[in-house]
Design a protein around this nucleic acid. Structure first.
Length: 113
DNA sequence: GAGATGACCCCAA
DNA sequence: CTTGGGGCCATCT
């Protein structure tokens, strides 16, 4: 893998507007890695940069992906999302039809570089 | 190299 | 709704 790959992923995540969320697959697409959603999850687990809003990345079911290690990150992620105005339904899921980020010009921006 | 693991996704039954 | 199968790929044993 190239370090540019990671930078692309982090850059894509950083473009998610406040109060909205994106799925791993979405980020993979934006980073130029179609079908490599898993790689996005891996990149995020290795992430240690506070300037990247990793909490805005959730799985395709609209849920917060459960971590393996100490599950404190899950709580933090939920708190930060709620702080941005995102409401969870009674199933603990996020209504993607309301909060899903729909990138438009950002797509071309990322890919043609 | 082989196997197992992991913050994933999609489809069919 | 749940199961099971397939695909993706970095990292560690």
């Amino acid at each position: 893998m190239n370090s540019s790959t990671y930078r692309n992923i982090y850059a894509a995540v950083s473009r998610i507007p406040r109060g909205q969320v994106a799925t791993y697959g979405q980020i993979a697409l934006l980073a130029g890695l179609p079908g490599r959603a898993r790689q996005v999850g891996y990149a995020l687990s290795a992430l240690n940069d506070p300037s990247v809003p990793w909490h805005r990345v959730i799985n395709a079911k609209g849920e917060i992906s459960p971590r393996s290690g100490g599950s404190e990150a899950d709580e933090l992620q939920r708190l930060r999302l709620e702080d941005e105005g995102i409401r969870f339904d009674s199933h603990g899921r996020i209504p993607l039809h309301l909060y899903r980020w729909r990138p438009q010009e950002a797509f071309l921006d990322t890919v043609s570089v």
